Amino acid sequence: MIEEIYIRLAIDFVSVFILLRLIYYPNYKKMEFFFTFFIFNLTIFFITFLLNTVDISIGAAFGLFAVFSMLRYRTEGISMKDMTYLFLFIAIGMITAILKGSWGELMLFNFLILGFTYALESDFLLKKELSKTILYENIEMIKPENHPALVEDLRKRTGLKVHRISIDEIDFLKDKAVIQAYYYEK
């Protein structure tokens, strides 16, 4: 059992390292969640590995997975993407700890998760569209007939290759509008 936990832990660590350093960080350049992602994964790994050594029903295992996957920090600062990554770290920890197959199957499952994540995060399948919220003061430009000129004005002011916009709020008292400007990363 001791050497099995070391092998599984090594596979888990390599998978987490690849997900953190080679997929998550290059795309988001945020280090604030590294600790959270790593510790969540490690804790889930150890809990599920230890629970896997005792007999529990499949229903109890799914219930445990549901509890861990539904954990959510009650802050506004966590985006949907970060929550998805947190779920991935939980899933990798659980899969690595409880999969009954061979080491090859275990590495294959982790590779598939990492491969699909990389493919979806890169420009391999889709161009990455980003958005910026802009407080815009030229209220005359928000009229539908002026949208092409508005897009061009936003391109000049921001230096971004804006290709579409949405107007989220209009304040006629202050002559301002809140606009979402959408552009491609590259």
Rank of each mutant, 00 (worst) to 15 (best):
E121A: 03
F68W: 02
D153P: 01
I134V: 14
F34S: 09
L71D: 00
L130C: 11
E137A: 10
F35C: 01
F116Q: 05
F111Q: 00
E145V: 06
F46T: 03
T75S: 13
F89C: 06
T36K: 09
L71R: 07
F87R: 04
M70K: 02
W103A: 11
F49T: 02
T133N: 13
K29E: 13
T48K: 01
F89D: 02
E145C: 03
N138Y: 11
I98F: 04
F38N: 03
L99F: 12
S131F: 12
F109P: 00
K132I: 05
I23S: 00
F65E: 00
T43Y: 05
F68I: 15
K132G: 05
R74I: 15
L106P: 12
A66H: 11
E137I: 02
A91N: 03
Y136M: 07
I134L: 04
I78E: 09
V54H: 04
L154H: 08
T75P: 00
G93T: 07
A61Y: 08
F49L: 03
K30M: 05
Y85Q: 03
E76L: 09
E140T: 12
N52C: 08
T96H: 04
I23D: 02
L126W: 10
K29H: 15
R155W: 06
G77L: 04
M107S: 13
L112C: 12
K30Y: 01
N146G: 00
M94C: 04
F68K: 01
F33W: 07
T75F: 01
G59R: 10
S131P: 02
R74L: 15
G59W: 05
S122L: 03
E137V: 07
M80F: 07
K156A: 14
L126I: 09
K30S: 13
I92L: 14
Y73D: 10
E105Q: 14
K128H: 13
F49V: 01
M141F: 12
S57D: 04
D82P: 07
L120C: 10
